[in-house]
């Protein structure tokens, strides 16, 4: 619970942060909310020689809507997402997710940029931004670039970021039917990482045909995954119990969870199927005219 010695660096601009990263490379770590990094350092699993603190850089924390997208600065705290009226209105699924992400103390400090850079296969933001087809913006010595969320997560705790790149923003296309999304998470005790989790966001026409669907899965593989084949399966379909059933079985097939203390691979597959079905049912319920229309 006592980290090895490190130097603490406090850049004032993003440019400076990137320069420091370029200079110290693998020996340096970015510090955002510190809710994953600090525990790892205390366990001496992470042993950075240099800690580059982003917290003194202005303008990295924001939530704003522009061009049909909600832009969230990398340093935006989980709690700010929880309390944002833009998020509540445009992407309520994020609010549903953040309420089951860790606990109040962690949410006060942890950031969305840090969470996705941490790329925990059982983290909550991964499945959500995959379901929403978010883009990740980052900055490196050669300038900025953008990635699809799908291309961002490459392995457990590993992303497509270069060692000298910083995540600057998560840009999320606002779903056309904001209410038709949900996040379902199974956790051992409250505040824990997911055993498995499912994020779904749909859009459907007035006949109940699924126009579009985004599905993100947590705890389902060595990284958060987007259930692309199942999305394709359901797109253009009526979400009948039978269709859902077939899709749920498909989910079980494409999942390849890691066995760990949260559950064996078999268990995770089985319950993933269950919560996927429940997520879809919940969304359909929300869409049904008796419970308040499709939008």
């Amino acid at each position: 619970m006592y980290p090895v010695a490190f130097d603490y660096l406090e850049p004032r601009t993003l440019q400076e942060a990137v320069e420091l990263l370029e200079k110290w490379g693998e020996n340096a770590s970015i510090l955002a909310g510190g809710q994953s990094l600090i525990p790892l350092m205390k366990l001496r699993i992470a042993r950075p020689r240099y800690l580059i603190d982003l917290n003194r850089i202005p303008g990295l924390s924001y939530i704003r809507e522009q061009d049909g997208c909600v832009h969230i600065g990398a340093l935006t705290r989980h709690v700010e997402i929880e309390e944002s009226s833009v998020v509540r209105e445009k992407i309520p699924i994020m609010q549903e997710a953040v309420r089951v992400l860790a606990d109040g103390q962690v949410r006060n400090l942890g950031t969305i940029g840090g969470a996705i850079a941490q790329a925990d296969p059982a983290g909550d933001w991964g499945p959500v931004i995959l379901a929403l087809n978010a883009r990740i913006k980052c900055l490196g010595p050669k300038g900025g670039r953008e990635m699809e969320a799908m291309d961002f997560f490459t392995f457990a705790y590993t992303t497509a970021l270069q060692p000298d790149e910083v995540v600057t923003e998560i840009a999320i296309p606002a779903p056309s039917a904001p209410r038709l999304g949900t996040y379902v998470k199974l956790e051992r005790v409250s505040g824990d990482f997911a055993i498995v989790s499912v994020a779904v966001q749909i859009d459907r026409d007035k006949d109940g045909i699924c126009r579009d669907i985004g599905i993100g899965l947590g705890g389902a593989d060595d990284r958060p995954i987007k259930a692309v084949p199942v999305e394709a399966l359901l797109r253009g379909q009526k979400l009948s119990p039978k269709a859902i059933d077939i899709a749920a079985r498909r989910i079980e097939e494409i999942a390849s969870p890691i066995s760990d203390l949260r559950g064996s691979q078999e268990y995770k597959k089985e319950v993933l199927k269950v919560i996927f079905r429940r997520a879809l049912e919940r969304v359909i319920e929300r869409a049904s005219p008796t419970t308040g229309g499709s939008r």
Binding site: P39, L43, D103, R188, V189, S190, G191, D192, L261
Partner: peptide, 16 residues
């Protein structure tokens, strides 16, 4: 020991 931190050794929280 597989449960050597509170990340793996799960204590009930107020919610439980």
């Amino acid at each position: 020991l597989l449960t050597s931190s509170l990340m793996d050794y799960k204590l009930p929280t107020a919610e439980e």
